[in-house]
Nucleic acid binder design. Structure first.
Length: 311
DNA sequence: CCGAAAATAT
DNA sequence: AATATTTTCG
């Protein structure tokens, strides 16, 4: 029953192109409203955590700030035929949101790090170099709307552990190096989906670098796929849980993706110092291809932000 | 601000 | 129960 992840996973493995890692990074992501459409998490009746201070990047654009409530119906662009399950599924979690809840102090839902997003992360780190690969820089370089330093920092930590893990693996017969070999840890799945820059292991060696075969963006299909908020907030009240079961597709492919695409806005945060990568490669704006496949099914309030793409 | 650890939620 | 993510402490 959990073999379902192998779907996209396997697909991505094959998709892992080489030049992609050195490819330019540019990310736009998550729609403003949606991304920040924070909703509620399930805070226990205890003290409320965090006060959600004024986020520096609140796209309070001029006007419409759609409230997070309600499901955002996005046109499901083209979905696969697999079932059409497109179901816009986002749960409108009814509950009580909708009218009350000052959407002002919202909390960000759990961020789902999808392989694509992780790749962006790795790319940024690779371009930055372990030296400058600090949360702030990475976050800025990623330009992922909705991504926060804390998010990156947290993930960075995990990523480092993963690297350490693969490093320590010297007896693993896999032999394959360079991309992903490692044995099979559950946590490795996520990291394994993203190629690991070879030189991530030695900081003291700014060399080795990689070749930069600048490959033109040949295949850039415009698939849209982005943030998707799913999940009802079941534990808010011990009463009934409104769960939305959105069946839809559970075929061998089971790809429930909510294709959304919104012109994400790129927020340029000011960085005091320009980020230079070790290999001196800048990051020219380019299109990125990514795919997202969040897991839905029951009530999970997660926000998976993502750009688009895919083969 | 970064790094790691602890806590919490899924 | 394990894992992922968030949050807090150093």
């Amino acid at each position: 029953m959990r073999e379902e992840d192998s779907n996209w996973f396997a697909k991505w493995e094959e998709e892992l192109p080489s030049p992609e890692e050195l490819m330019p990074l540019s990310q736009t992501l998550i729609t403003p409203d949606l991304a920040l459409a924070f909703d509620i998490r399930n805070p226990p009746p205890n003290h409320n955590r965090q006060s959600t201070p004024p986020p520096p990047q609140l796209p309070q654009t001029t006007a419409h700030s759609s409230q997070p409530n309600s499901s955002a119906e996005f046109d499901s662009a083209e979905l696969g035929g697999s079932g059409g399950g497109g179901d816009g599924g986002v749960a409108g979690v009814g509950g009580g949101m909708g009218s009350d809840e000052p959407a002002r102090t919202l909390k960000r839902p759990r961020l789902v790090w999808t392989p694509q997003l992780h790749k962006r992360f790795v790319d940024a780190v690779a371009h930055l170099g372990i030296k400058n690969a600090v949360p702030k820089t990475i976050m800025q370089l990623m330009s992922v709307d909705g991504l926060t330093r804390e998010n990156v920092a947290s993930h960075l930590q995990k990523y480092r552990l993963y690297l350490k893990r693969v490093q320590g693996i010297s007896n693993n017969g896999s032999g394959g190096v360079g991309g992903n070999n490692v044995s099979a840890d559950p946590t490795d799945h996520l990291f394994a989906s993203s190629p690991v820059p070879a030189h991530f292991l030695h900081p003291g060696r700014p060399n080795s670098d990689h070749f930069l075969p600048f490959m033109p963006v040949a295949t850039m299909q415009q698939h849209h796929q982005m943030a998707a908020v799913v999940g009802p907030g079941p534990h808010h009240h011990p009463q009934l849980q409104q769960q939305f079961r959105h069946f839809g597709t559970s075929p061998p492919n089971g790809q429930f993706e909510h294709p959304f695409l919104r012109p994400s806005q790129q927020q340029v945060q000011r960085m005091g110092a320009p980020v230079h990568s070790n290999n001196g490669s800048v990051a020219p704006p380019l299109y990125v291809k990514d795919l997202e496949s969040p897991r839905a099914g029951n009530g999970r309030k997660v926000l998976t932000l993502f750009p688009t793409g895919d083969d």
